[in-house]
Amino acid sequence: MPKDYPKAILEAEQLSSLEDILVEEMCQSQERGIHFTGVHFRNGMMLVDCGSQGSAEWIIKSVPQLKSWKGPELVVLRGDDIPKPTNITVFFPRSQEMEPEKILRLVEVQNSNLNIGAWRILNSRKEGKGTVLTIGIDPQTEKTLKAGGCCLNFRFGLIPVSGLKSKEVSVDVEMPSTSREPEVQGEGADSSLGQAVGSAGAPMAAEIPSAALAAGRSCQLPVRAFSDSEREEHLKESEEEQEEMEEGT
Rank of each mutant, 00 (worst) to 15 (best):
R217A: 10
C219P: 00
E174G: 10
S179K: 11
S166M: 05
S177E: 12
A225T: 08
E168Q: 14
S179V: 10
P176D: 12
V184D: 13
V169Q: 12
G194D: 01
L164E: 03
S210Y: 00
L164H: 01
Q185L: 15
S177V: 12
P203G: 08
T178L: 13
R180K: 10
S177P: 00
P203H: 03
A211D: 00
S192P: 00
G188N: 11
F226S: 06
P209Y: 02
E207C: 00
A206I: 06
F226I: 00
L213K: 11
S162I: 00
T178Y: 11
G188V: 04
E174N: 15
P176C: 10
S199D: 03
G216H: 10
G216L: 06
S179M: 12
A212I: 01
A205E: 08
S227E: 06
Q195R: 14
Q220Y: 09
I159A: 04
S177T: 15
M204E: 04
V173Y: 11
F226E: 11
P182R: 12
L213N: 09
Q220D: 12
L158V: 09
D190V: 04
P182C: 13
K165P: 01
T178C: 09
L164G: 01
D190P: 00
E174Y: 15
E207W: 13
S227M: 06
G163L: 07
P222R: 07
A196V: 04
G194H: 08
G186M: 11
Q220H: 12
S192G: 02
P203E: 06
V173H: 08
S192V: 04
L193E: 05
D190H: 08
I159E: 01
E183H: 13
A214F: 01
G216C: 07
S170Y: 05
S210F: 02
C219K: 09
R180N: 14
V161K: 01
V171D: 07
T178F: 15
E207K: 10
Q185Y: 02
V197Y: 00
E181R: 14
R180W: 03
F156A: 14
K167R: 14
P203N: 04
M204K: 02
A225G: 00
G186P: 11
A205F: 09
P182L: 10
D172G: 10
R217M: 11
A196H: 04
C219G: 04
P222N: 08
G201F: 04
V197K: 02
A189F: 07
A212L: 04
S177M: 09
P203M: 10
P209L: 02
D172H: 12
C219Q: 15
S166Y: 07
